[in-house]
Design a protein around this nucleic acid. Structure first.
Length: 576
RNA sequence: GGUUCCGUAGCUCAGCUGGAUAGAGCAACAGCCUUCUAAGCUGUGGGUCACGCGUUCGAAUCGCGUCGGAAUCACCA
């Protein structure tokens, strides 16, 4: 039970005892007391005045007195205007901390029995991953972990957009002007080589617009199964996959289910027939099929072309239905940029009209673009920030900072390498994930690589500091050292309060599909620890019982930091 | 034009299911390393929470409107 709900519960009892009125516990407003005031938690009494028919401080005093005399955990109160500040006794904090210390997997919420699919990444196979994809991947990966921590069974999925005009363009350019170049012959990562082809094609088309006809012919040949085109397609996609695998591995991202559009693009046609039969869709004289959404404030939406071929939404309808069936999903989260808000609005609405009640359980995690100081990234203008380059430059920056600090003289080159990668990646991931997903964010290559302040490395460093103390401890300690009669300092109480909050934050992050909630929480926790560390001796503490209490406290801190950052896919080193 | 999202310190961002004097980091300035890792800590300065009206005991937070920015409204994916 959180302190907030504990107070809600007890305050409701108090109100019943004093005013003979039943109030819903959840309607009582409890928050952490602002630091300018005496107390730990605050009950807002303004809303209760209608019941008590008394002045705010009279009401506060009455409830406060009842709580102090009837609830052993509450030791003192003061009432300021409509705010009743309550102080908890040390026993409460000690019990609370001990419970956290003993929890086998603190932050893991009880099972909901629900299965949720999270689709993310879903790249095109005609160019390498860039900064925008990184935001998508990190959000998807992190949301998957958070939903799991919220007690759900999570299936991470991606659908590779491996067919279509875009890949044909790369294929066309490769045949025309790359002289049989391969990743092996050029020493280039496959996805980058194919990306070069795509750029080369764009140039060709600018000079000779008619080449687009050849590309379209290529696409038709692909659909017919022309052996030559299929072979070329398979070869070039193979290069891209090998390249993507490296990038995914560097980012630490994996999937449980990988779909390919070349296998799913025909799905959804039966649904169109079903929709026609049920009158959800209408057929125009030219044979094209439409869904009229004007009554819902949207437009008429095409779901099948006159020639019987699919459009984007057709296969999305079919894929969604197949997934809900095959995986017995309760819910489906799509991590896709906000330029597709309209698409998902339409998708949900059409599925609903088709009678699928799970349509309400589809969530579009719509995230904002990543912009550069010069504005939007444009591949045509060469201003995209390449994912591999970025990961590499973060690594180098971590290496530079570490070498300057000179604290790692005695570890092997291999361990150093792993550490630099951990720090560089931690900086990158945290930088992107700490921002509210739905907001457009700015990436400044010069300034964004910072390892001080509200950054991933700051939190990693804090963890390394704790580990350093734990390594040097010469006494054994454990949850039993959180004695009921321990006297935590004000700073220690603040730490316990923050630790108490962790499961609440996990729940909030899951409900809002926002890893940023966890990132900001981890930062607060690390910052609070550093202040504590600065003016509280631990190994130098002379009273052994106090020292053990502190060791156990910081050990719980380290565990919680690891768990929280783990939800963001960020690892914490034991030294740096 | 319709719809959706955004607008908080010089910059990057928290806070938004209504609560007390709106918080961090960066940048600037001033301090703290013979003492558990200075990637740290402490302090100073910095605000019309875009603007207006409304609801409320109370609004950065909710509603309406205005202004500014972005996205979208394809027989592209």
């Amino acid at each position: 039970m959180t302190p907030e709900s504990f107070i809600q519960n007890k305050a409701a009892e108090a109100i019943k005892a004093i005013y003979s009125t039943e109030v819903a516990e959840t309607s009582l407003q409890v928050s952490v007391t602002r630091k300018e005031f005496e107390g730990d938690y605050t009950l807002v009494t303004f809303p209760l005045l209608k019941i008590t028919r008394q002045a705010p401080d009279v009401t506060g005093n009455a409830i406060g007195e009842w709580l102090v005399s009837n609830v052993p955990e509450i030791s003192a109160f003061n009432s300021v205007k409509g705010f009743l500040n309550l102080s908890f006794s040390p026993v409460y904090w000690n019990e609370s901390l001990k419970a956290i210390a003993e929890a086998p997997d603190y932050g893991q919420l009880p099972s909901t029995g629900r299965r949720i699919m999270v689709e993310f990444s879903s790249p095109n196979t005609n160019k390498p991953l860039h900064l925008g994809h990184i935001r998508n991947n990190l959000l998807g990966d992190s949301v998957s972990r958070i939903l799991k921590a919220c007690g759900n069974d999570v299936v991470k999925s991606t659908i590779v957009n491996d067919r279509g005009v875009h890949i044909c363009k790369s294929m066309y350019a490769w045949e025309k002007c790359f002289n049989g170049a391969t990743p092996e012959s050029t020493g280039k990562k496959g996805d980058h080589l194919v990306g070069d082809c795509y750029v080369a094609y764009a140039k060709m088309e600018k000079e000779h617009p008619e080449v687009i006809d050849d590309v379209h012919k290529m696409l038709v040949d692909w659909e017919k199964g022309d052996p030559h085109v299929r072979e070329l397609w398979a070869m070039m996609n193979g290069w891209v996959y090998a390249g993507f695998d490296e990038t995914y591995a560097a980012l630490g991202i994996t999937f449980d289910q990988v779909d390919h559009e070349s296998e799913t693009y025909l799905l959804g046609k039966e649904l169109v027939q079903k929709g026609l039969a049920e009158g959800v869709f209408v057929k125009d004289p030219d044979g094209s099929v439409w869904c009229d959404l004007t009554a819902d404030g949207l437009d008429r939406k095409l779901v099948l072309r006159g020639d019987g071929t699919s459009v984007y939404i057709t296969q999305d309808l079919g894929t969604a239905e197949r997934r809900f069936q095959n995986f017995k999903l309760d819910s489906h989260v799509y991590v896709v940029g906000n330029e597709q808000d309209y698409h998902f609005q339409v998708l949900k609405l059409i599925l609903k009209k088709l009678g699928f009640d799970w349509a309400d359980q589809i969530y579009h995690l719509s995230y904002g673009m990543v912009e550069l100081p010069e504005g939007k990234m444009k591949s045509r203008e060469g201003t995209v920030v390449d994912a591999d380059d970025l990961i590499e430059s973060m690594y180098l920056e971590a290496k530079k900072t570490s070498e300057e600090s000179g604290k790692l003289a005695d570890i092997t080159a291999e361990e150093k390498d792993r550490l630099y990668h951990m720090i560089g990646l931690g900086a990158l991931k945290y930088f992107i994930i700490k921002v509210d997903p739905k907001k457009t964010m700015l990436f400044n290559p010069k300034e964004s690589i910072d390892f001080n302040g509200n950054t991933g490395p700051f939190i990693q460093y804090t963890h390394a500091r704790i580990c350093s103390i734990l390594r040097k401890a010469t006494v054994a300690f454990g949850p039993a050292d959180i004695a009921p009669d321990a006297q935590p300092s004000a700073k220690e109480v603040r730490l316990v309060k923050l630790l108490d909050l962790y499961p609440v934050k996990v729940g909030e992050a899951g409900a809002a599909l926002s890893p940023a909630v966890i990132a900001n929480y981890a930062y607060e926790l690390a910052k609070e620890f550093n202040q504590y560390y600065h003016d509280t001796p631990i190994l130098k503490e002379e009273n052994e019982a106090v020292m053990k209490y502190r060791l156990e406290l910081i050990s719980v801190m380290a565990r919680t930091l690891r768990s929280a950052m783990g939800l963001l896919g960020i690892q914490l080193p034991e030294r740096m």
